[in-house]
Amino acid sequence: MAKQYEFPSKGLPYLLVLPQMVIVFLFFFWPSAQAIWQSFFLQDPFGGRTIFVGFENYTKLFKDPDDWASFSVSVAFAVSVTLSAMVIACFLAVQANKRIRFQSFYKTMMIWPYAVATLVAGVLWLFMFNPNVGVIAWFLKARLGIEWNHLLNFNHAFILITASAAWKQISYNFVFFLAGLQSVPDQLVEAAAIDGASPTKRFWKIIFPMLSPTTFYLLIMNLVYGFFETFPVVHQVTAGGPGKSTHILVYKAWRDGVINLDLGGSSAQSVVLMILVIALTVFQFRFIERKVTY
């Protein structure tokens, strides 16, 4: 055990964390407090009139079937993005970890998509799947007879946003899985191989459990990404459509507040969203982390 370093004076450590605290306060606590405050009012956008309405913005939220639909589609979306991005990334990382030719080239190419901004990723996918001019949409129609139309078909729209959101995240997951795999001691795997364990068995019994801290970390990061950072994808690809079917929570809160200027309703949604994130994180650290072997 390394000795703990102690600061000579009491003030210095506080001074050192101060910039961080100021940033957290300014960019997290202050806006959150504002959102909570605003969620109890109806307000005209120019700030001329403000009517206190108590919990009305919240009761409206819970009574509105649209909000429930938005909630369930968000959950479905975040889970699909997380699962597909993690499973594919894990598979690719395992392949890349083998002794193969052009390994570093392959790795570089895998990491590349992460450099693409989420919004741009959305545009790229949208372009390929555009029912009118997209290459893949054309291929699906001409070769497979599938009439691709994410403008009117919910399943198509859902697949498209999931794919665009997951595609980018695969790179991120890939890096972590690869790092995790490289820290798995070779002798363990070799010993198992000598004992006659099949590659599948070696993976599930040795490699996967040893990867669990990475997997756990990525699970949280991906869910958070799926819930909260996929706004640009939805904004760009479906704009919530067809109908309102891909109105995920963050998109809806943004739309109601920024475009439709309903500050109270949008704030109430943000507050609910905030509680959701807190609950999610607490849950994950409390219950899932216990099963993780470090």
Partner: peptide, 15 residues
């Protein structure tokens, strides 16, 4: 918001 409602419902009609 009204235009948005119209757009959304129109898509539901077409679907």
């Amino acid at each position: 918001i009204i235009r948005e409602i119209e757009d959304q419902v129109w898509e539901d009609i077409l679907a």
